[in-house]
């Protein structure tokens, strides 16, 4: 009974927020709690006042500020529709591909403004790779899937180099042993978990600096999920990884820092341990204790 009442109040607050606008909301969420900035340290990604609007005035992200460090795994969690995926897609300008989507604010990769006129989305996406929720191998062979990026970007001078990149990427993604005898068979013929690792291999074949992962394991079974999680942990040595996840356990297992999004706001960003053991904000606590989401 007690819990149910609590739940009601949260919902009520959120509801006032949506109908009443930002003014009333701010007494619930006043800026981001925790440590959104990497003071003094050199951030890989630097995001200030990021707002995202969809077709017209529908706002999906409100004034998000955060830094993302080098070689860290940062997890973004929050209830469905909270904007975590939308925010993730800002970082390699994938939102450009959505009609009517507009991003404002300052996002820098290694100090370069990614929205700068000089900045090229193609180059940006080569530097900031992305793995999607549903494994989406291209309708090509396993080899061609991995070679897709290197071929596009002219990363290999000859066939031998390309073979090398493909083998290394598949090895890093932990897939090479399983598929080395059937590199020419279609990538769509693999199991779900293998497909997702193929997509990861495809992404790292371009040697990006950052890998964005949008709920990479939500379509997979627990065993495949465990394999991918191990893989992410290994990849941390070479890449910065931002992962959006639905599973709080996953965030706790693999990330160093965790960001909690709620209705388009970044509510709390802190060390993963702190977020899960001692959340500062009521909404975060409600979420991680399973009251909603």
């Amino acid at each position: 009974m007690m819990e149910a009442t609590l739940d009601m109040t949260t919902v009520a607050k959120v509801n006032t927020a949506t109908s009443g606008g930002r003014e009333e909301f701010s007494h619930t969420i006043s800026g981001t709690i925790g440590k959104p900035y990497l003071d003094g340290k050199d951030a890989k990604f630097f995001c200030r006042d990021v707002n995202v609007f969809y077709s017209g005035d529908k706002q999906a992200i409100f004034d998000v500020n955060m830094d993302i460090g080098r070689n860290e795994v940062i997890a973004m969690i929050g209830p469905s529709g909270c904007g975590k995926s939308t925010f993730l897609r800002c970082m390699n300008r994938m939102n450009d591909t959505i009609e009517g989507c507009r991003v404002t604010g300052d996002i820098r990769l290694d100090g370069e403004d990614i929205h700068d006129k000089e900045q090229d989305p193609v180059l940006l996406r080569a530097r900031v790779g992305m793995v999607f929720q549903k494994p989406n191998p291209f309708p090509k062979s396993i080899y061609d899937n991995v070679a897709y990026g290197p071929r596009l970007h002219g990363l290999a001078a000859n066939r031998a180099e390309l073979d090398d990149i493909v083998e290394q990427s598949l090895t890093k993604a932990g897939l090479f042993k399983e598929v080395k005898d059937r590199l020419q068979s279609p990538g769509t013929g693999l199991s779900g978990g293998q497909q997702q690792r193929l997509c990861i291999a495809r992404t790292i074949a371009v040697s990006p600096e950052v890998i964005l992962m949008d709920e990479p394991t939500s379509a997979l079974d627990p065993i495949a999920t465990a394999t991918i999680e191990e893989l992410i942990d290994e990849l941390r040595a070479s890449f910065t990884i931002c992962i959006v996840t639905h599973s709080m356990q996953q965030a706790a297992r693999i990330s160093q820092r965790t960001a909690y999004f709620h209705m388009g706001y970044l509510v709390e960003l802190n060390d993963t341990k702190t977020v899960f053991t001692n959340p500062q904000h009521q909404l975060t606590e409600n979420y991680i204790t399973g009251r909603f989401g």
């Binding site: 080569a126 530097r127 970007h153 002219g154 990363l155 371009v206």
Partner: peptide, 8 residues
Amino acid sequence: STTTEKVK
């Protein structure tokens, strides 16, 4: 990185 140069 070399990727950046090659892509450019």
